[in-house]
Structure formats: C-alpha cells, structure tokens
Design a binder for these strands. Sequence first.
RNA 1: GCCUCGGUAGCUCAGUUGGUAGAGCAAGGGACUGAAAAUCCCUGUGUCGGUGGUUCGAUUCCACUCUGAGGCA
Length: 326
Amino acid sequence: MDTKTGPVPACGPFVALVGATATGKTALSIEIARALNCEIVSADSVQVYKGLDIGSAKPTVAERQGVPHHMLDCADPRESFTAARYQDGARRCIAGILGRGRLPLVVGGTGLYVHALTYDVDFSRVVGDEGRRQRLRALAEEHGPDILYARLEEIAPERARAVHPHNVKRVIRALEIAEAGGAAADGYDFRKPLPGVDILMLGLKMDRAALYRRIDARVDAMIKAGLVQEVQGLLDSGVDSGLPSMQGLGYKEIANAILGRCTLEQAIADIKRGTRRYAKRQETWFKRDPRIEWFEVSPDGSLNGTLSSIIDCVSEWKACTMNRRG
RNA sequence: GCCUCGGUAGCUCAGUUGGUAGAGCAAGGGACUGAAAAUCCCUGUGUCGGUGGUUCGAUUCCACUCUGAGGCA
C-alpha cells in the first residue's frame, strides 16, 4: 500500500514536540495547536492502532477539543504497522496540512517515527519480506543467533560491527539489506538532514523521580478507566496476544493476567516498571539529537509556564522561517 | 528482667577459618534502517548497626551498646 505511487517526498516546515512518556506532550500539544492554528500528527507506534485507546493514552475526541489529529487509529490491531508505513502516511498528512495553510505539529515519543519524519531516511530501498524473516528467525531459534550473525559478518562486515550478535531483529534486518545488494547498503546515513525542510524540534523533560511518580499514577488511572476490559475486548475480538499491536506496554502485561500467566497485581507492577524503563530509553534516544530545544516541565506537571515559553519559541521560529522563505 | 536468632547495596539475602565484600531483583548508562511501547548491550551504587578492645590489619574474634523478631518469666 505504501509503494504504489512511490515514496512520498518530505516537505515542511513543521514543528515536532517530543519527550518521554507521561511528560505531558498530549495536553501541551493541544494547547499549542489551539494557540497557533496547528493540526496534530501523532508519532506514536501504539496509538496508530484502532481500539488501543486507554493503554496507549490516546487523546479522546473530547480532549482533542476540535483540533484535527492525524495518524491515530489508522491500523487494525490484527495487522502489523511499520515505520515505513508511518513515514509514508505522516508525510501525506503533513503535506495536506500545509496545503490547508496550517502548521503541522508532530507529537509523539516513538523515536524511530520522529526520526523517519525529521531525517532523510529511505526505508523503501529494501522492502521487508515477512516470509524470509520467519525463515531466518527459525534458523536462529534452532541453531542460536550466532549463525545469522556469522552470515552477516561474511557479506557485510562493516554493518556487522554496528549490530550486536544477539540482537536477532537487527541482524535479520541488516541481512535483508545486505542480501539485497550493494546499492541498498551503500551510502547509508541514518542521520542525513532533509534538504529544504525547516523543522523546529521541541523536547519536554521532567525530573526523573517526578516522572516515575507520574507514570505509576497514570498506570493506576488506566486500570481504573477500564484497561483490563479494553484488553479483554481486543482478545475477544480475535486479536492474538502475540501480535505486534499487543506488545505495547499495558497490553502484553494485562493479556498475561487475563490468560492466567500472572496475577493482575503482578501485571500492574510489570506495566509500571516497563513504562519507567521505556521512559528512560526514550530519554536516551532524544538526548543525543542536537536539534531539540528542551523545556523543563515542573514536577507537578503543570504546563502554564512551559506553554507560554514554547509558544514564544514557535512564534519566533515561524517569523524567522517565513522571512527566509519570503 | 533472662534466653535465642537477626542487623551487610534501594529490597531480599549470601560471604569472608581475620587481608575493607557479591548474587537476584530494583536502579543507572548506552545502542538503534520496514516489529521501535519492540529488540539488544554495559554497569555494583556499601561508614558490612554504633563505640571500644585484641591484632601489623576487624565487616569477620571479644566486650559493651543501640535496634528488630521470637521464646521464657
């Protein structure tokens, strides 16, 4: 579905708001959108799935307050979404928003998705082949992961050095690219700037201890809001617990409890721990991106001060960008 | 009041026949090309309850002391 008309070219300008989970991106983004006439493009690998609402902290229609949101509910949880599909869909959304004369505001914590929009990444060079992946995975399960890595070392030694032998998913993808031939693997630059696209990147950060308290409280709130029923409903409607959509935080753990693999209490503790670790990984991902301008959110999560300084920042950038273009 | 067993990393505990200590979990750091809320890699953070004593050297032995649990009165 994403290659029929060729890759969608990137365009801009747009603003991206990133940061770890539970820092308040969603609430803040809606305020910014209202103040600056934006439409929001979500960059979240779980919110793309229909029916994964509570656990993904997807903004409700009421919370969206009339601000158009894109890249939510665009996949069935029975199918597997990909970064390439995200890039394609989100680029179309950005083009559409600009066409309407409004400012696109990309909001989300999925680093790879943000990356796919803000750098010149071309996933289309080597299309993933599910059948071959399954064969390779089976090989790794039978003979151990080293057998795949040995093959990668043989045909693409420079790529092999960049991937850990035990990281089977990465080794398989690297093999896929390497086996597709030289052209696909050559000139690979994961951080190539997008020529001619102005992007303003804003990051939210919060004191670690405060963030962890917020995460714990949010998980409890999700349970109260009916996360267990949501997961039960997904399972009842034929969504297998092994699917990619069900590997999201909150979904795999609650499914485990429902399937009798652990107690609900244990599942809740696992979600909290998993989400804390996830937040840490997100910080690691975004920390190294020098383009991001960081804003500190107060430990109580109140956004007032942050909102006005961000709006100032965006307005200034807008004026600057228009000058340069006009 | 007496007896017994404990007090070592954030938690649960191991250990040193005397040479200042290590597991699990939690945590911290990092990587990142079509699964990315996924996947993977690295790391022990410590007044060994306190004060004295013996000793070249004490977390380890001794005394006292504080503290927790249990038992006997």
